[in-house]
Structures are given as C-alpha cells and as structure tokens.
Design a protein around this nucleic acid. Sequence first.
DNA 1: TATAATTTGTAACATTTGTTACAACTCTGC
DNA 2: GCAGAGTTGTAACAAATGTTACAAATTATA
Lengths: 228, 228
Amino acid sequence: MEHSYKILTHSVLFHGLDEQSLEVLFKDKLYRIRHYEKGGYIAHSHDECKQLMIVMKGSVRGEMTDFSGKTIVIEEIKAPRPLASGFIFGSNNRFPVDIIANESATILVLPKETLIAMMQQNSLVLKNFLDTVSSRTQFLSNRIRFLSFRTIREKIAQYILTLSGKGKNTVMMTQSQTSLADFFGVTRPSLARAFHEMEQEGIIKTERKKIILRNKEKLNNLLHHKPS
Amino acid sequence: MEHSYKILTHSVLFHGLDEQSLEVLFKDKLYRIRHYEKGGYIAHSHDECKQLMIVMKGSVRGEMTDFSGKTIVIEEIKAPRPLASGFIFGSNNRFPVDIIANESATILVLPKETLIAMMQQNSLVLKNFLDTVSSRTQFLSNRIRFLSFRTIREKIAQYILTLSGKGKNTVMMTQSQTSLADFFGVTRPSLARAFHEMEQEGIIKTERKKIILRNKEKLNNLLHHKPS
DNA sequence: TATAATTTGTAACATTTGTTACAACTCTGC
DNA sequence: GCAGAGTTGTAACAAATGTTACAAATTATA
C-alpha cells in the first residue's frame, strides 16, 4: 500500500493531503485493493453500492444495459478518480450502471464505514468528498436545464448567453459541435442546421469554434417565448 | 431557539437526533435565524451559496428568471426542509435559482463552517447531509435517463418495465398523466397519444391509472432499437 | 508532408412531437 | 346529488427534429 499513497494524493478525495497524512488516515482502517483484467465486471447495475471505489491504475467504464441487452457506454473513469460517489449514500444507493474494466485496472475499495470515519477524522477529506458529490449534482442540474428546453435554438441561445456574460460579443466553444449536440440531447446535423439558420437570420455568425453575437436582442427573444 | 429544536428533529438534516443532542450540537456554534415576508427574496440566482438554509416555518419557492425576465417556478420547499443543499459545496457553489418566500417564512441559516463542524461532531448529521445531497444526485440522474430517450414510447417502455419488475404484468401509475408528461419533458396530449397508440398495437392496455402489460416482448423491442 | 481520422456543412425526406381546442370523465367538498 | 376543479381522451394541423448520405474542411499522426 505504501507506494500507492503518492497516487492517492492526486485523487480528488485526498487532494491536499500529503503522504504522511494519508498513512495516518489509513492506519487501522478497513480497505481492500482489487485487481481486474480487461473486460472484468467491477459492479453490476442495481447492485447495492456500499463502498467507495477509487480507480488507482487503468480505467473503467460505466455501461448501461437496456432491457434488450444492448449496451451503451455512459462514461469513462480514469485513475485516480472515484466512481459512483453519488450512489453510496442516499435513498437509492445502487449502481445505476454496470462498471467494467476498460483495461487492466486496480481499484481501492473503502467500505462506507471507513469513508465515514475518514471524513470525521479529517475535514479536508470531508470537504473533498462533499465537493465531488456536489459538483456532480451541479453538473446534472445544469444538464437538465438544457435538456428541458423545447427547441434547439433555445438551447443554443441559453448556451451562448451564459458563456458570453455581460459585455462580450464573441464566444469560443470549448467542445466540438458533435459533443455539444450530445450534451443537448439532439443529433449533430440538427444542431448544425439550427446554427446555420440563426446565422441566416443575422442573429449570430460562426467561424468554426468562434461564435460572434450579431443581434443580442433576437437571441434574448428566443428565450422570451419559452414554454415549460 | 430552544423551542425550535422540536421542529428541527423533523428536518432531514437532524433526523434521528433528540432535542438534547441538538442543544449540544448548537452550543457554541454560529448560526442565524431570519424571517421573511411573503414575496421577499431569500437568495438571488448566481449568489454565492456559502451557508445551509433550512426552512423552519412557512414555505419558499425556487424561481428561474430567464434572460427575458420571464419567471418559471421550479420547486416549492416547505418546512422543515433544507434548500439548495447540493450547492454549498462543489466547484460552482452558487444558487441556480432565485429563492423567494411563498408566505411568511422563518429560515435557519448555518454557515458552511458550522455545518462542517456539526458533521464532524455527529456522524448522524454527516450521514443525513450526505443522504440529502446524494438522493438529489440520484433523482437528477434518473430524470436525465428519461429525458435522454429520443421518443415518448421509449420513455414509456422504460418507465413501465422499471416499475413492473420481474413477474408483474400490471403497473399502477403513482402520478397523474400530466405530471408524468412533465417528468418526461413532453406535452400531455403527446403522452396520451403515445399511450393510445401502444394500446392500439396491443402492447399495453390502460385503465386510468392502471397499466396492463399485454406484450412484454414488443415493449422490450421499443428499447431495442434505441439510439444514443 | 502525406495520409488517416475526425469534424463539419448540407440536403431531401420521414417521423415525431407540439399546438390548440373541446368533450368526457373523475373526484372533492358542500 | 351537484357544482366546479382537475384530469384524461381525442383530433387536425403546424412545426421541429431525426435519418441518411455524401462532400468538404480540419486536425492528428505516421
């Protein structure tokens, strides 16, 4: 274990602690280290989630299997990140997805009790864990905002206006159009079409990843007539 | 404050503690109690969220103001529930909505430091808070699953199959069709139409709030050809 | 630099959903 | 038993998005 502390100092949960603090923290605590080969199942969807797992080496993926057996990759988690941290506590603490090793992977397993003890012993661990779970909430909450808009133009308007802040008239997209379409829950061609239409109407002008606001008022109006 | 402990024992954060434990817990801690009249602003959207607020009397609502000034009520929070508990920690700890008093309301304000101290002092408080935040994550996560399905029929299929579990062939809807439509992010008539079509095709049969599964295989197939 | 892989632009057509409006039904309190 | 509020059934038409396919542009990589 000793040689692993260095890795853990880079983990979000133990961020800010040095190796000595970690040694103190792990003393007399229950934990396990598990190895998985590529393709191995680390957890099954609907399994009870009563321990925190941190990927220490390699990477794992979350997969959803629908009722037909078709699988969809939801997310990839690389070392040294925790997985399913939002599902250890709460009223429905079960894995929402299957967790499978993407490659040979090493996982640190902390039972719920150990996690609680660590959080009470060290306020930094407590804050780190709360930050992790809360950031997730905030991400999901933001995502839902976008998914809830009826039309693609509304999503675009909200997206641009949020990024542009007050004075600015240009916005740089941080992600590809493809992944933005994914975030919005629409298809890529549809998103491209919407951008194009808005450009035709003189609302915006796009230059690859750069978006220039030409008519902020019209952009506002798109949200104006919003339902829901 | 003393007479308030009884109310707090019913709050999710202090659930399981008796009045004496609360007295010990609040001793030497910083906190405030604030009163708001109907319509008063308790917090503004984008304000920094650095304290936990618990509604002790009355009720408040979360409102979103879009760029045009139109407001949408997101949620109502009644006593004795905490508000915005998922936004105190995390990387973007700002209120996502405006918080406004629905009626005359009393709010207990716990600074972040007080909250941390209480969680470290009492493991029940720690667990309760983590349960609150995590339940939120789980709710949002589930909501996103439904919003991500392309078609209404897919949402319905997922909904019914999840509720029906293994053997059962009937499902009772716990909410009105109207609020289900809301949860799905679709309009009510569209949802009704989808139900009707599926009934025509012999997949299900609806009797008001009761849904009878007539062809589980076809229901599975709806998810089978799922994109995304 | 050449080549492959990824991203983006664009179009025609099919599908799905929204909109609006009204009638029928159910439930509650009086 | 009845009035009124809320919920559900239904339909015609409009609007938005998905699907598919291919070319062009860009970026990564050998």
